[in-house]
């Protein structure tokens, strides 16, 4: 069993209106040292597999459902792997 966290964000080239709005709010707090905010989402997925099979599952799920490659990109972390 493997727990995986998949992060989905807009591509670097795509304007992120939520991130911009949040950055403005942070500036209102007085934190002018914050120069950029990007908003994304993550999915915690438990997969009944280990090793390369997990990579294959994540790739297929991301490609076909979780990510719209017109505007988004993704990466993932293996959080923990258990027998």
């Amino acid at each position: 069993m493997t727990n995986v966290r998949i992060f989905v964000t807009y591509k670097q080239s795509v304007f992120d209106p939520q991130g911009e709005t949040i950055k403005d709010a942070i500036h209102t707090l007085g934190h002018d040292e914050v120069t950029a905010v990007k908003v994304g989402k993550f999915f915690d997925v438990t997969i009944d597999a280990t090793g390369a099979a997990v990579d294959q599952s994540v790739k297929e799920i991301a490609d076909q459902l979780l990510v719209n490659f017109n505007m988004e990109t993704y990466h993932y972390q293996v959080l923990e792997e258990a027998e």
Binding site: Y10, V14, F15, P17, Q18, T21, N68, N70, M71
Partner: peptide, 11 residues
């Protein structure tokens, strides 16, 4: 159709 529809710039 090509492309995608994303959140309005104005939020």
């Amino acid at each position: 159709l090509p492309g995608a529809l994303k959140r309005n710039d104005s939020q």
